[in-house]
């Protein structure tokens, strides 16, 4: 099964990369852009027949390694 994981900075955690990208977008003329946040996208294949089991494993991976709960949130999608 294909799994897509999104790791983003928690609300309230300052994102210097996001700020730099936002400034660059403004200088390119996209003046209406705000709140730019840079995150991570991770995709993988899990050898599992059950969506539920794949979700359980992905959640564990996020909590143990893929995201740092001090500064990051995560979400994911399991596709059959």
């Amino acid at each position: 099964m294909k799994v897509k994981v999104y790791v983003t900075l928690k609300k309230g955690v300052f994102d210097p990369q996001g700020k730099a990208v936002e400034d660059a977008l403004h200088s390119l003329g996209f003046s209406g852009v705000g709140n730019v946040r840079v995150g991570k996208y991770i995709e993988m294949e899990i050898n599992s027949t059950s969506t539920k089991e794949a979700e359980r494993q992905t959640k564990e991976m996020c909590e143990k390694l893929l995201a740092n709960p001090v500064i990051e949130d995560y979400s994911f999608k399991v596709e059959g």
């Binding site: 955690v13 300052f14 210097p16 990369q17 730099a20 740092n68 001090v70 500064i71």
Partner: peptide
């Protein structure tokens, strides 16, 4: 946690 330096 230790994040990217403020000035990148």
């Amino acid at each position: 946690a230790l994040m990217r330096n403020r000035d990148l």
